[in-house]
């Protein structure tokens, strides 16, 4: 009851200003950061090979472009709201600052502050001599004995007050006791009167307004706050670490737990599991599990879903994160077949091509499936084999009559990246061998090449090109050098609703029991520079003469190993599988021995 | 709700989940076999007459193999395997049943391979691997079958696994080289 209220509007502007700044400063910083880094990301995409991305736009259907445009509009609307809030916020801040500046009551309170430097009219970094000389000059001017006779009594008392203040200021800067007081309490005379109050104008707390205020507080603390907190909490609780719904994760776990080894793992099985995902039910509560399954199959078989086409695109966009969640769970259950098929299913959905022995060719645009499967005499299943024929013959094999279309298809086919293993080893940073109980990681040197390039053995690449930097930083963090490689460019995926660049998934399997030993490692940085090279297998005749290893860029993949090396000496075998999530064909699958020695 | 038919001595659980249904089927199978068992003092010891029958059929097959009558040999061995599956009671020693089956299956695999039935051989080999037989000869035959079926990537995975368990096996090494050559051709 004895509290003072903010009659003179002295305190509440500062309160509002503080609250606004707490919100606006981080928000503005975040927005500026996004603007800058967004520009950087675009630059990265431009740096890498972009022919696949451009072609992908060209071949995308109108529904997909519409779908993307709608999503972009949603995103930019939210961004516009955020920007609006930032602008409005800073405008209010500017107004408040100006209000504070012009408010007399606040200014009066400010003048009560004791500032010896302004009183003595010197700068804050003056020396003792400067202070003394300033004091002497002013005291001469304002000393009561030195004042002129023709001053009015009021002028006299003002001068006398000024003299007292000047003396105090001098003492505050020189005399020990006064200076201590000044530093502790801000005033040489010791603690001044302080007042405590509430930063609200009285009318808000008095009479009728007070009931409104109380109701307002009750609503805020008892209703609005709990509502938002509980909504946020249930949203966080409903998602797993990998970003899928807990119900979906528990469904996948249940399927894997009850998985019978006699069951053959097919695309149909994975799609069936996916169709039970909770995310789909939440997105389309009016559709059932069987519809989801049918729509996903439509995507893989490039069938138009009629009225459900937009729904299908929504499901397909969501299936990306669901498949990664399934992959994570499958590796935790150590099941290699499911892990492999999950990645293959992602490929099938991205390329809208079923998993079959001919997927590598069917993923290309303009291919006539019928003439491919029934046509040629030789059974061609791989891109590499396809490029052993000349362009005209390829056109016949793929059933493409139009020459422009054929050229586009060939451009895409030769731009699909294939991984070629150059070197592979288990490495312990700082050691020359893998010692017992050490922490090795798997270091791979790969060549990203086109199916069109002539094959050359890994021993044609000299060891010097495969060496890593041996400096202190690389020993401390062997994975830092990976970040120097550029990000993957856009994938050719005209049937996928979003723009994507994908990644490669690295799985490590113990050969002894054939089971996966750790969660997958995602690789999203590799240089595609080699794909531009013209090293056509049909034209290069003499490998020895034409091959120049220094023209080729070697990529590095480092896979962390989740367990320490075994305690005994010996040879331990692991199978390393590096699968692309985007294209059929560019995968690696090999055995790597870990030689544990003293 | 559990329902029991006292005439057929069988249980039934309508609208049950997959697991419960399987359990009920197993209980019913066990009940039927127990009811059909004539000897009140049955033991886990494999029955003499079943063993004799299975052995006879199998040896028949071997004889036909020696006479180069491959198709007939396969038929006899198939019969022997089917007999083992049907005649053996579920309470007879598992180790004996498994060994008997695996032995006959190994011969069936070879007969299939010789007659070009690669898919059949592959499934039998998968069965042998799944039931714990991870010897090198299984890997050798599986690699061979996969190569014949043009599944060169899978063949490579098999032969590499075989080599990691038996690094000095000459036959596996030869198969590995051959498969690498075929893979190179397959990829142009």
């Amino acid at each position: 009851q004895s509290y003072d209220y903010d009659e003179g509007s002295e305190t509440w502007p500062f309160f509002v200003l503080a609250v606004l700044c707490v919100v606006l400063v981080p928000l503005t910083a975040m927005q500026l950061w996004e603007l800058v880094s967004g520009g950087q990301k675009d630059q990265d995409l431009k740096d890498q090979l972009n022919v696949l991305g451009k072609m992908s736009e060209q071949y995308a259907s109108s529904e997909i472009l519409e779908f993307r445009a709608k999503n972009l509009a949603k995103k930019s609307k939210w961004l516009a709201k955020r920007n609006l809030f930032i602008i409005a916020g800073w405008t209010v801040v500017a107004y408040l600052v100006q209000y504070i500046g012009s408010n007399d009551a606040i200014q009066d309170a400010a003048t009560l502050l004791f500032d010896p430097y302004t009183l003595l009219d010197i700068s804050t970094s003056s020396t003792d001599r400067e202070i003394r000389s300033a004091y002497r000059k002013l005291s001469v001017k304002f000393h009561p004995d030195k004042l002129t006779k023709d001053l009015s009594p009021e002028q006299r008392s003002v001068a006398e007050e000024q003299f007292v203040l000047i003396t105090k200021a001098y003492k505050a800067l020189t005399d020990e006791v006064t200076r201590e007081n000044f530093l502790k309490y801000g005033h040489p005379d010791g603690p001044q009167a302080t007042s405590h109050g509430i930063a609200l104008p009285k009318f808000l707390v008095d009479s009728s307004a007070s009931t409104l205020m109380v109701l307002g507080y009750i609503a805020l603390l008892g209703v609005i706050l709990p509502y938002f907190v509980s909504r946020w909490w249930s949203k966080t609780q409903s998602m797993t670490k990998k970003g899928i719904h807990v119900k979906s994760a528990s469904y996948f776990s249940d399927r894997l737990f009850n998985f019978k080894p006699s069951q053959v793992v097919t695309l149909d099985l994975i799609v069936n599991w996916l169709s039970h995902a909770e995310e789909f039910k939440l997105m389309f509560p009016e559709l059932g599990q069987e519809t989801f399954e049918t729509l996903l199959h439509d995507q893989v078989n490039r069938k138009h879903s009629g009225t459900l086409e937009t729904a299908k695109l929504g499901l397909v966009a969501k299936s990306h994160v669901l498949l990664f969640g399934l992959l994570d769970i499958a590796t935790t259950f150590r099941n290699l077949e499911i892990s492999n098929m999950a990645i293959d299913t992602l490929k099938a959905i991205v390329q809208a091509t079923p998993v079959s022995p001919y997927s590598q060719l069917l993923q290309l645009p303009n291919v006539n499936a019928k003439s491919l499967l029934e046509g040629s005499v030789d059974d061609i299943r791989t891109l590499g084999k396809l490029f052993t024929y000349d362009d005209a013959k390829i056109g016949k094999i793929l059933g493409i009559d139009d020459n422009t279309k054929l050229q586009e298809t060939l451009t895409i086919a030769s731009a699909i990246p294939h991984l070629k293993l150059i070197r592979a080893e288990f490495k312990v940073p700082g050691e020359s061998v893998v010692t017992p109980q050490s922490t090795p990681h798997i270091s791979l040197k790969v060549l990203v090449r086109s199916a069109k390039h002539k094959f050359f053995g890994p021993n044609l690449i000299p060891d010097e090109m495969c060496q890593d930097e041996q400096d202190f930083d690389s020993l401390r963090d062997p994975f830092a050098s990976i970040l120097e490689q550029p990000r993957l460019p856009q994938t050719f995926a005209p049937h996928f609703p979003g723009k994507r660049s994908g990644c490669w998934c690295a799985l490590v399997v113990l050969q002894k029991d054939g089971k996966v030993i750790q969660t997958p490692m995602l690789i999203d940085r590799l240089s595609f520079a080699n794909l531009n090279k013209d090293f056509d297998k049909r034209t290069v005749k003499d490998l020895e003469k034409d091959f120049k290893p220094e023209d080729w860029v070697i990529g590095t993949i480092k896979i962390p190993f989740s367990q320490p090396a075994p305690a005994e000496k010996g040879d331990f075998f692991f199978r390393v599988i590096v699968k692309s999530t985007e294209y059929f064909g560019p995968d690696l699958d090999f055995t790597l021995a870990m030689a544990v020695r003293e | 709700t559990l329902q029991y038919d006292s005439n057929s001595k069988l249980l039934d659980v309508p609208d049950a989940s997959e697991d419960v249904e399987m359990n009920v089927k197993q209980i019913n199978k066990l009940t039927q076999d127990l009811v059909a068992e004539s000897n009140p003092n049955f033991t886990p010891q494999p029955r003499e007459d079943s063993t004799a029958m299975i052995k006879k059929l199998f040896e028949n097959g071997l004889k036909q193999l020696q006479q180069q009558k491959m198709a007939d040999a396969l038929k006899s061995v198939n019969l022997a395997v089917e007999m083992a599956q049907r005649k053996r009671a579920p309470w007879e020693a598992f180790a004996v049943q498994l060994q008997e089956l695996q032995f006959m299956m190994k011969n069936r695999v070879d007969l299939c391979l010789v007659q070009g039935k690669f898919m059949d051989a592959l499934q039998d080999l998968d069965f042998l691997q799944n039931t714990g037989l991870t010897t090198s000869d299984v890997f050798i035959r599986k690699t061979d079958a996969l190569m014949k079926l043009k599944q060169y990537d899978q063949a490579r995975a098999e032969v590499e696994r075989g080599l990691s368990l038996d690094p000095t096996n000459a036959k596996l090494r030869v198969l590995h080289m051959e498969n690498t050559r075929r893979l190179a051709e397959y990829n142009g």
Binding site: K260 | Q123, D124, N130
Partner: peptide, 22 residues
């Protein structure tokens, strides 16, 4: 024994699935 039997009986179905796939 029953598990073994089930695995054995799956052979025929697996053959069909693989034949279709390949």
């Amino acid at each position: 024994n029953q598990a073994l039997k089930r695995r054995f009986q799956a052979i025929l179905l697996r053959k069909e699935v693989f034949s279709e796939q390949w």
